[in-house]
Design a binder for these strands. Sequence first.
DNA 1: GTGGTCTAGACCACC
DNA 2: GTGGTCTAGACCACA
Lengths: 114, 114, 114, 114
Amino acid sequence: MDFSENQPIYQQISDHICNQILDKKWTPDDRIPSVREIAVAMEVNPNTAMRAFQILQEKGILVNKRGVGHFIADDAYETVLELKRIEFIETDVPAFIKSMKRLGYSLSDIKDLA
Amino acid sequence: MDFSENQPIYQQISDHICNQILDKKWTPDDRIPSVREIAVAMEVNPNTAMRAFQILQEKGILVNKRGVGHFIADDAYETVLELKRIEFIETDVPAFIKSMKRLGYSLSDIKDLA
Amino acid sequence: MDFSENQPIYQQISDHICNQILDKKWTPDDRIPSVREIAVAMEVNPNTAMRAFQILQEKGILVNKRGVGHFIADDAYETVLELKRIEFIETDVPAFIKSMKRLGYSLSDIKDLA
Amino acid sequence: MDFSENQPIYQQISDHICNQILDKKWTPDDRIPSVREIAVAMEVNPNTAMRAFQILQEKGILVNKRGVGHFIADDAYETVLELKRIEFIETDVPAFIKSMKRLGYSLSDIKDLA
DNA sequence: GTGGTCTAGACCACC
DNA sequence: GTGGTCTAGACCACA
């Protein structure tokens, strides 16, 4: 895992976890590697890893059993999908369409590019 | 004009100017409001507004006549269009397609939404 | 039984037991479920359940007959009542009154809510 | 300002700020002392102070102007009041009433104590 | 072993 | 000057 510069690392980590869930690589009740394990694996400070976990916990995507570890929440897939879809539909798509039109492209042009 | 949090303000300003040019609201030889005017109008630090201008000047989109003001360059439209198109094709489109697929949408879904 | 996040689980367990006593659901000489039983029932680490028992034992609310189990002490009800009343009067009530006033409520408002 | 032990410092700080707002000592558009200033004044690490600020920012109680500082949001008073009231009514009051009854007290007893 | 909090100090981008 | 991110390392409570 290597990190881009324009986004805080903790956010990239939490996005990565969301993607794992969307791709069904991690499913409910799976135990996530501990803060320390992730920190070592990603060559990152434990605090940074922790922060990623906390974000997801607040959104109800991860669940924390104290003294035990972090787990994928039961409805994590649905939650992530909904959150990301809302963001996509309400933010990404309009922005994309807007700059597409401004640059003189149409959806069929995009189709050809994809 | 209100600013998003994920992007530096000076970039949002310079993007805004580019968009004005793309939308043909500002055309070559138009005099652009002075740094101070912009700063006041946008409730922004003059340094910030200045920085936006400098970026555009370096790219040849604005030209500066000392003691007079900033003006839209002759080939500003073409320059902006090319720059933005490259960024769009190489960065925005792939990213858009990627998250589109991950969320289970297709281009025809986007068509319906647009 | 589900646990809140702001308090250690062992304390929540021992509070729970105290409440059973106050509500007269458990009375002197009743044998309390074994540590293992409680641990399984509450989906908790046996160490955690054990710790709850020890606290109550130190306060003279439970008594331990080795090899047999834990039992409610003779004067458990009185002991619990006194301990909890002190805490209530000296800590809970002042804190409650303070935030009540800050939020613009009076005791008669509370009466209506209750 | 001295801190209790049972609660994280960053939470006590953010509660303190909320109380300042409830008590109308800080009003909308007031600039809050910078992270560093607070850190020095409270003899706390800047990171800890920062965390308190972020919590309030997420709740819309503080607003951050980048490179400038943190400010009390326009509707901070209403927001805080509502948040705290909900917590009070839905959590604190029922818990208080419950243990009050369990300990054999009534609201008129509380009145005498207050 | 786990998470959680806190410190100290550095570095950066932004205004 | 401001906030924001990150590291390194310590310490603690909890299970």
